[in-house]
């Protein structure tokens, strides 16, 4: 990190000017760094959002469970009472609540519409259970329910929670992989641009060698320039990316995951690490290109 930082201050005005300005490679590097940083902001946002989602699903669903009671109408009240009695004596239960008809109607609304006659349908009763941090012994509770209320089925959401959390984790991983690929592509592009600049300045390098310049001096002149271009381009890309993220609709229930894609709170500071990382990538890529090229010119 010390080397890229020391590059930012020029030791002498003349030393910085030995390489002539090259418009094409300068623009290419700036544009590449800006575009990649812009994409990196989105990849970072995706990673953070999916991370938040995975945490939320893992946390909230892990501490909730449902008991469904399917019984003939004349036995329903008795089985509900039996289940509630069992829950009262079950360790790890923080609270329980029988869902009313209105809540059932809300749950079924997406499938049957708003005018569903819940009273006329032989629907099961649902009891929402909230667990304490210690959790419930699921197998023990299932056995007790089987004995006390044969129509009751305990569902701790494991079956569908796991794939959801796994999907969110995969998305987070994909976001991080995208970041790695974006910086890899940036390194490749900057290496090519640096090679083009070095090749275009073959006569300059020959002259510098003629007057006794060491490889480190020549490489430094190119590396400093490309590092600063990478930094400036990435800064621009991050600004544009953050503006685009700010313009996304704010998170709400109806939008679900998509509207929660942006940054929140301290998360807005994360994109600020992209320009320094881009500068380090540009530094490494140009050093590599310069070392390879200078080895070939005597």
């Amino acid at each position: 990190m010390r080397a890229p930082l020391s590059l930012l201050k020029s030791e002498r005005p003349g030393a910085d000017r030995v390489v002539p300005p090259t418009g094409f490679t300068a623009r290419l590097t700036l544009l590449t760094a800006a575009a990649m940083a812009f994409l990196a902001v989105f990849a970072l946002a995706l990673s953070l959002a999916t991370g938040r989602l995975a945490d939320r699903w893992a946390d909230s669903l892990a501490r909730s469970a449902t008991i469904r009671i399917s019984a003939p109408p004349d036995q329903m009240e008795a089985q509900v009472a039996a289940v509630l009695a069992v829950l009262k004596t079950t360790p790890g239960v923080a609270s329980d609540r029988v869902l009313g008809n209105d809540e059932m109607k809300d749950l079924l609304k997406p499938w049957f519409g708003p005018d569903l006659p819940v009273d006329a349908l032989p629907l099961p009763k649902l009891i929402a259970v909230t667990e304490t941090n210690t959790g419930i012994d699921s197998e023990g509770l299932r056995l007790r329910l089987q004995a006390e209320a044969p129509g009751a089925v305990f569902d701790d959401h494991t079956r569908w929670r796991r794939p959801l959390v796994a999907a969110a984790e995969r998305l987070r991983l994909l976001g991080l992989m995208s970041l790695v690929l974006i910086f890899g592509a940036m390194a490749g592009m900057i290496t090519l641009a640096a090679q083009a600049a070095l090749a275009a300045n073959g006569q300059v390098i020959a002259t510098l060698r003629l007057v006794g310049a060491r490889d480190t001096f020549i490489a430094r002149a190119f590396v400093r320039r490309f590092t600063l271009r990478g930094l400036a381009g990435a800064g621009l890309g991050v600004l544009l990316g953050m503006a685009a993220m700010a313009a996304l609709p704010s998170a709400n229930e109806a939008g679900g995951f998509l509207t929660g894609l942006g940054f929140s709170g301290w998360g807005w500071f994360w994109p600020l690490i992209i320009p320094p990382v881009a500068a380090i990538v540009a530094y490494g890529a140009t050093r590599f290109a310069a070392a390879r090229m200078l080895r070939r010119i005597r």
Partner: peptide, 20 residues
């Protein structure tokens, strides 16, 4: 073999510049 973008003065001083 001059650096055409530098002035005469800067070109003459180039060996000093490169040797810091």
């Amino acid at each position: 073999q001059f650096l055409e973008h530098l002035s005469v003065e800067e070109n003459v001083a180039l060996p000093m510049t490169v040797s810091r």
